[in-house]
Nucleic acid binder design. Structure first.
Lengths: 364, 364
DNA sequence: CTGTTAGCGCATTCAG
DNA sequence: CTGAATGCGCTAACAG
């Protein structure tokens, strides 16, 4: 049906092996025959059969990128960056690798399911983005699956999540064999700490915290940074009372803020787990007739593109998502050497904007 | 190295063919042997070799999704929806098809390049999202490429773009052979028209229009709807003078608004090509000391999630991106029958919110 | 219902 | 530098 290598070979008057060689360019071929083959390829509009070549070469040019939610710019930006790393810079050269973006929806089952699919495709590499679920059972399953993939030659890169905790239960040789996956992690805890310190320095003492989903590394690290800053300021007694967990979306921010207001009508600041949640928080506060930042300060996290356009512009913590994704992409392709220790932490920078200001009545 | 079908067959004491049959479930197999095989699969942790099966079956389970920009929620939402259509509803069943999201960056070359990659992978289907570039040369190349893919058995679905214009130059049999790709189009023109009518009815007469990139179907259709409404109101003289082209991003909205203000300092409304551009427009107006909507009304397009949280909340046109994407996904999989004529147009609904109000001095 | 037999299209030895 | 032969792992006819 479709035109094959053999057709091209016949047209060019050479053997299939020669055509294969010029196409892959890994072998010496005479200039004359090379151009003759190339012309035949053009004329026949030949397109390599990916599956066949993957089978024969036992390698594929697919790179999987797992994200919680493509529709969320947080992941969209990272995915876009990973993909950009596949194309060899400016030149219009076709990338040999192709990124597959897979939506897990944050569900552990779907994460494993997509890994199986990727494993089945014999993916060259896989990049796991975003926070990890902290369920021990899932971690064990994930570790096992990733190790099997790594053993089969798939490069595994973590982006935006910490390295997998070591096995611990001593089943099988751990330190030995395949090395742990390379990780590009975010300084979530440090960023959250600086953010809270910023609010503390403005004079805030009664702050509500809208945390992300429970049992997620990102959620935990951000919350820990926040609590650490509170503790350092001698405010640890409030811990927990003004923390509400929810999803990383607008409505969680809205509902969570109403709940916080119920718990403490006099709070002077709301720290949201991310920018999207912060938007919901702002909406809830406005609906309650509270002004931002005069009555209540609001902060986000991530510094997504829309944060600067919120009204008022959101004070937040900037995470260089694009740079991190690009780096993860290069690590996946082996274009960049892994960092010492296998873990690179990208800095989170405090962005002070209009949504934070001193509280109405400082220090309660 | 890896465990193969043969290994499983040996362990289960059956032939490779039988294992293949239980795995694909398309053939009758005795219950006893079936469970024996399944157990062997479990014990050996066998994972099918995708490339090999694709080669043998001459079909692949990959579905390509081309988007201009994954980091843009407009595309992210559609991509997410397409992907959701791959999973058989509630059941935790693994999707047999896998969506590959490819970033074209809006570049025709990259669009063709990714199609080549997809063609190489022998993709089962490909979904092209977003507006099409209107360069005749590119259209011809695209049409040729899509036809070749369709001939090779790949289902082609358009989502958010109009059907390809017919060949016209009479090269080769056109109407014959493979049918034209199915398309899920947006009523961009109708939505834009209703939006402009809304502003007209409020009393606006001097409106600036921030168009998208030139030579894009989406840009053209939205602009046409706008101009049609103006013409119907007898305002055609202004055509063009108050239209500025730019990218679909915030900075274009910002810069374009400054340019519009230069051309007509007394304009009372700015219509942006999409919500992101509108955000930039709002920022520019605020920086110029103009209030929204008291001094200038602003409208967006698409009704992305953040539109309702802008301050003031954005009057815009809602396009059911998720529904459209899901439908495109089902059409790609053949789960849904194509609409009569091969083209389904989804309605664009006017969403009136706080960013539009009567002008300061009605009717100039 | 199950085993046997052929390839699918290509990348690689190994000779020449 | 090039051609001929072999097998990657699996599916799809055929037989039985």
């Amino acid at each position: 049906m479709a035109v094959t290598l053999a057709d091209v070979a016949a047209r060019a008057g050479v053997s299939a092996a020669t055509v294969s060689r010029v196409l892959n360019g890994n072998y010496p071929v005479a200039g004359a025959t090379r151009s003759r083959v190339l012309r035949a390829v053009e004329e026949l509009e030949y397109v390599v059969n990916g599956p066949a070549s993957a089978l024969a070469a036992a390698t594929s040019d697919l790179v999987g990128v797992l994200v919680n939610d493509v529709a969320d710019p947080f992941f969209g930006i990272m995915a876009s960056a990973v993909q950009s790393a596949m194309s060899p810079e400016g030149t219009g050269t076709a990338p040999r690798k192709m990124a597959i973006v897979c939506n897990t929806g944050g569900s552990p089952e779907r994460e494993l399911m997509y890994l199986t699919l990727l494993q089945r495709q014999r993916a060259a590499a896989v990049v796991l983005t975003g926070g990890a679920v902290e369920d021990p059972e899932h971690i064990a399953a994930l570790r096992a699956r990733l190790r099997r993939m790594a053993d089969a030659g798939t490069t595994v890169v973590l982006c935006g999540r910490p390295p997998l905790p070591p096995a611990g239960d001593g089943t099988g040789p751990d330190g030995a064999g395949t090395p742990a996956p390379v990780a590009v992690t975010f300084d979530n805890s440090g960023g959250a700490k600086r953010l809270t310190q910023h609010l503390l320095s403005l004079g805030h003492r009664r702050m509500g915290y809208l945390a992300g989903p429970v049992a997620r590394t990102t959620t935990r690290h951000r919350l820990e940074g926040h609590l650490a800053a509170l503790a350092a300021a001698g405010l640890k007694e409030d811990t927990g009372r003004l923390t509400v967990y929810g999803a990383y979306d607008r409505s969680s921010g809205y509902d969570g803020t109403l709940e916080l207001l119920r718990r403490d009508p006099d709070l002077t600041a709301v720290l949201a787990a991310n920018d999207t949640v912060a938007l919901g928080a702002c909406a809830a506060l406005r609906d309650r007739g509270l002004r931002i930042p005069e009555d209540v300060s609001v902060t986000g996290f991530d510094d997504l593109p829309f944060a600067v356009d919120a009204a008022p512009a959101l004070t937040t913590v900037r995470i260089p998502l694009y740079e991190a994704g690009a780096r993860a992409g290069r690590l996946a392709l082996g274009t960049e050497d892994p960092p010492p220790g296998g873990v690179a932490t990208v800095r989170a920078e405090l962005m002070v904007r209009a949504s934070s200001a001193p509280p109405r009545s400082p220090a309660r």
